[in-house]
């Protein structure tokens, strides 16, 4: 910083004033540099045939060959469909459920019940995905699972859940909602609490029904929050929760056409054939697309309502 060529006295003085502030930020940025920025050099591996002897920089350049592999693979379309499809589905489902539950919770008259409902929304959020996969197994186990016990009790044939792809889009959406809906819900609740009560009062006096007040007051007020949440999720639209798509379906083969996402594909590729170049290529693509999406949507949001943009 001292190498700045034309240090106006004023500027130098100003800098000196701010020096303590920069120093405060230093530890975090040193850490980010080591933990996040230095490994970025690994992204060049996307264009290399990596060998241990060559290391990151010395390995042979292969241009876009690693990307070619990704695009030539005939499963790519399927994987992209799953990755994007599930993310969009999860966004919509969690949003609709979150908003609905938030409205319902705020409408509960009994204070204790309301408190209880509100705080139980987040319990699944604090549990690790491994434990969640244990719980799912307890329901879906083909032999001992609760669902098959129920089916048998109703005189129906048990279903081999982990081999039947049909129900899995629903199962995954349900598990994801079970674990994640509380997060958005809490957010919507606080937005609803922030709405000026006199608005409702006025609406009531002019004879609006409950549904009408929700439609014309609550929902419009929730819009900014919804946009922000969507924005946050859009950046990760090419990423998927590895635990959800790998641990929860227990890596079962027959349902892979509905559970395979970009992340599980990379992991499986890495385990069966160590191909570090290909992994780097896939994660570079993931990052780039996510990055561009966030920038684009942030710009869009900025245009529509400045205060909702993230940066």
């Amino acid at each position: 910083m001292t190498r700045q060529k034309k240090p106006l006295r004023l500027r130098a003085q100003r800098f000196k004033n701010y020096l303590p502030l920069y120093l405060m930020m230093l530890p975090a940025f040193i850490y980010l540099f080591i933990n996040n920025y230095l490994p970025l050099s690994g992204l060049v591996l996307a264009f290399k045939h990596y060998t241990v002897q060559g290391g990151i920089w010395g390995s042979e350049n292969v241009g876009f060959q690693n990307f070619m592999f990704l695009f030539q693979n005939k499963d790519t379309a399927l994987i992209l469909r799953n990755t994007l499809g599930y993310n969009l589905l999860f966004m919509v489902v969690n949003m609709v459920l979150g908003v609905t539950l938030a409205i319902l919770i705020t409408e509960i008259g009994n204070q204790r019940l309301r408190k209880l409902a509100q705080s139980s929304m987040l319990i699944p959020f604090v549990v690790s995905i491994i434990i969640v996969s244990y719980m799912v197994r307890a329901f879906l186990d083909p032999q001992a699972g609760l669902l098959n016990t129920l089916l048998k009790a109703m005189g129906k044939n048990p279903i081999s859940w982990y081999d039947t792809s049909g129900p899995w889009p629903y199962i995954l959406t349900f598990v994801n909602a079970w674990k994640g809906v509380g997060y958005g819900c809490i957010l919507y609740i606080s937005s609803i609490m922030g709405i000026d009560p006199t608005l409702y009062e006025a609406a009531r006096l002019s004879g609006a029904s409950k549904l009408q007040t929700i439609r014309y007051i609550t929902l419009p007020f929730l819009k900014p929050t919804v946009i922000t949440l969507l924005l946050l999720n859009l950046g990760r639209i090419f990423n998927s929760d590895f635990g959800l798509f790998f641990q929860v379906p227990q890596n079962s083969g027959l349902i892979m056409d509905v559970t395979q996402t970009l992340d599980t594909f990379i992991y499986r590729g890495l385990i069966s054939l160590p191909n570090i170049g290909m992994t780097a290529a896939a994660s570079l693509l993931q990052s780039c697309i996510g990055f561009m999406l966030v920038i684009a949507f942030n710009a869009l949001t900025r245009k529509m309502s400045r205060e909702n943009a993230i940066f």
Binding site: D141, P142, S160, L254
Partner: peptide
């Protein structure tokens, strides 16, 4: 055969 065999861990 144990019915869960195909995906049993």
């Amino acid at each position: 055969i144990n019915p869960g065999a195909a995906s049993d861990t």
